[in-house]
Measured scan of single mutants.
Amino acid sequence: AQASVVANQLIPINTRLTLVMMRSEVVTPVGIPAEDIPALVSMQVNRAVPLGTTLMPDMVKGYA
Rank of each mutant, 00 (worst) to 15 (best):
A1L: 15
Q2Y: 14
Q2D: 13
A3R: 15
V5I: 14
V5T: 08
A7D: 01
N8L: 05
N8V: 10
Q9V: 11
Q9M: 13
Q9W: 14
L10P: 15
I11C: 02
I11F: 02
P12S: 11
I13H: 13
I13M: 09
N14T: 05
N14C: 04
T15K: 07
T15D: 05
R16S: 12
T18D: 09
L19D: 09
L19P: 10
L19I: 10
L19V: 12
V20M: 11
V20Q: 15
M21A: 05
M22F: 06
M22E: 01
S24P: 12
S24E: 13
S24M: 07
S24C: 04
S24V: 11
E25R: 14
E25W: 06
V26Y: 08
V27D: 01
V27F: 02
V27C: 04
T28H: 15
G31Y: 02
P33Y: 07
A34R: 06
E35F: 14
D36H: 12
D36G: 09
D36F: 11
I37M: 14
I37G: 04
I37Q: 06
P38E: 07
P38K: 13
P38C: 04
A39Y: 11
L40V: 06
L40P: 00
V41S: 04
V41T: 10
V41K: 06
S42D: 13
S42W: 09
M43R: 12
M43Y: 12
M43W: 07
V45N: 03
V45R: 00
V45W: 00
V45C: 03
V45P: 02
V45K: 00
N46A: 07
N46P: 03
A48Q: 11
V49R: 03
L51M: 12
L51T: 15
L51I: 13
G52D: 09
T53Q: 11
T53C: 04
L55A: 00
L55H: 01
P57E: 09
D58Y: 13
M59H: 12
V60A: 01
V60T: 02
K61D: 15
G62W: 08
G62E: 14
G62V: 06
Y63W: 13
Y63Q: 04
A64W: 04
A64Q: 14
